[in-house]
């Protein structure tokens, strides 16, 4: 730094300080969210009944839990995952193995990214317009799962496609050279070698869907009862947190914090495990 004028040095120092400050400004909210959710959440979970009881009929009453919402979130996310993760991976297999480089595959890849930017509320309105308006004529867990699935789909497709395209061509060629048919090569060679990456993408999609509120508002609607009926309204953690955040009743706000802790634990565990899998066994 010899020969650098004082003014240039000052600019350098100011700007570098700003960069560090920017990192702090981004990390302080993260820390604050985690600390608040953990402290307020732990304070609001009174024993196991939080996980086994539905909320009390009177929102103003204390006690009860959010078992309805925990079961609802798990049910709808699982239902969405069972249908849309295979759909996304199949789409990705088609793109990389059977149509790589052609115009359709480029268009699908591009619009999958565009679709991840669609406002999730509109995904909810779409699911409503199909399953609530045309099929069931009332709110249902299936409609909620459909909306969540539509959110997972492009994420799974996009990440799987990227992971599959990282499998070296030589691996495919080696298998084909042994006389293995294409479908067997894909099933026994390509997919297994990309397994870790596919798992990561799917888990990130599940984490994202589990935290969504807007798509469930006019599809699953919510319910204060523990319900396993897929054709009926169902609660979900984000929905309960959302009502709690708007509630004037301290007890309901308490349950919202406890729900927030449960949800954030679920989402962060999924996200962190996904990253761990990706780091551990990347292709």
């Amino acid at each position: 730094m010899k020969g650098v004028s004082a003014r240039r040095r000052a600019t350098d120092r100011t700007m570098l300080t700003f960069l560090v400050l920017a990192v702090l400004l981004a990390l302080v909210p993260l820390a604050s969210i985690l600390v608040e959710v953990i402290l307020k959440g732990i304070g609001a979970i009174h024993g196991l009944s939080f996980f086994t009881q539905p909320p009390p009929g009177d929102a103003n009453a204390s006690g009860g839990g959010l078992a309805n919402a925990i079961i609802g979130t798990l049910t709808m996310v699982a239902l969405a995952a069972v249908v849309f993760i295979p759909l996304g991976i199949l789409g990705a297999v088609y793109l990389t193995e059977f149509a790589s480089g052609n115009r359709l595959s480029r268009a699908v890849r591009f619009f999958a990214e565009v679709m991840t930017g669609v406002p999730s509320i509109m995904v909810g309105v779409f699911a409503y317009s199909i399953l609530v308006v045309l099929v069931f004529h009332h709110f249902s867990a299936i409609a909620g799962a459909f909306a969540l699935g539509l959110i997972m789909w492009p994420i799974v497709l996009r990440t799987s496609e990227e992971m599959l395209s990282r499998v070296p061509t030589s691996v495919r060629e080696a298998s084909l050279a042994l006389g293995t048919p294409k479908w067997r090569t894909v099933l026994k060679v390509v997919l297994p070698s990309a397994a870790a990456g596919l798992t990561t993408g799917s888990m990130l999609a599940v984490a994202r869907a589990a935290g969504e509120t807007a798509p469930l508002l006019f599809t699953a609607l919510g319910s204060q009862y523990i319900s396993f009926k897929l054709a009926q309204p169902m609660s979900a953690l984000p929905l309960e947190i959302f009502s709690g955040a708007q509630s004037p009743f301290p007890d309901q706000i308490q349950r919202a914090w406890a729900g927030a802790l449960t949800l954030i634990a679920l989402v962060l565990v999924l996200t962190l495990v996904a990253r761990f899998v990706a780091a551990k066994r990347s292709v």
Partner: peptide, 9 residues
């Protein structure tokens, strides 16, 4: 990864 409803709360 933080759900938007938690940002709201």
């Amino acid at each position: 990864a933080v759900p938007s409803v938690i940002y709201g709360l």
